[in-house]
Structures are given as C-alpha cells and as structure tokens.
C-alpha cells in the first residue's frame, strides 16, 4: 500500500483493487475548517488533472483535480453531514472518493511521501 501526492495537495492511496483520493493534511490546514465538499458522481470517468471535486471552508475554496485518470467507484457520503472529517482525518475518515485506475503507470509522475514532505517544507 503506497500513497502518492500532487503539487495541488491531492493524495491518492493505492489499495488492492482501487485507489482512494482526498486532500493532504497540509491542504486541510491551509483551508481551515472545512464546511462543504462537492463530490463527483458515482461512475463518473475523468482524465488526469480534470476537476473532480470542490472543497470549501468559510473563507476559502479549492478545486480538487484528479491525480490520475479513471472512474469513481465510491464516494464518501459521510462528508455531507460531517465535512469536518476532512480536518480531523484527511487521510483517514476524511477521504473523498474511491476510483479504479485506468493506468497505474501514471503514478510515476506523482510525488511519493518523502518527496511530498520535502515539497511542503519548501513552501515555508
């Protein structure tokens, strides 16, 4: 099981038969208290970099872009009633959606955990 990151602070965690997408701890801290998440539709297909979700705090909003191409296989319904999960556990219960990857090789262009932590550190 490994996790990859984009420069826009989305993460994608690879599980046995699917991948889980959400935003990083750094991104949730930047946004502040999350109040609303607009999730993609179940079954929706998209390409890498397509806008697939929106996450909003009171004074900020951020588009979430697909870290890889594929199709939505599940969405995190719990975020509708409890958007704060994104703050409490961005890489746990605060996940956005699950997807099937159309091509695993595209992960190579993303950052791994160590590279991402270095990237975040460089942002100051």
């Amino acid at each position: 099981m490994s996790t990859y990151y984009t420069k826009d602070h989305e993460y994608i965690r690879i599980e046995a038969d699917h991948a889980i997408v959400g935003i990083s701890d750094y991104a949730q801290a930047q946004l502040g208290d999350v109040v609303f998440v607009e999730l993609p539709a179940l079954g929706q297909s998209f390409g890498t970099g397509d806008q697939v979700a929106v996450v909003e705090s009171v004074k900020a909003a951020s588009e979430v872009y697909a870290p890889a191409s594929g199709q939505v296989s599940a969405i995190n319904d719990a975020l509708e009633a409890s958007p704060g999960l994104v703050n409490e556990a961005p890489q746990g219960a605060g996940w956005f959606f699950k997807m099937t990857l159309s091509d695993k090789s595209q992960l190579a262009s993303l950052m791994d955990e160590a590279a991402y932590q270095a990237f975040v550190a460089s942002l100051g």
Binding site: V35, F36, E56, S57, V58, K59, A60, A61
Partner: peptide, 10 residues
Amino acid sequence: TLSTREQHIR
C-alpha cells in the same frame, strides 16, 4: 455565510 459562492473567494 456560504460566501464561497461569491466572487471574492471563487
């Protein structure tokens, strides 16, 4: 409230 709809944020 719900200001994320508005121009000053979006």
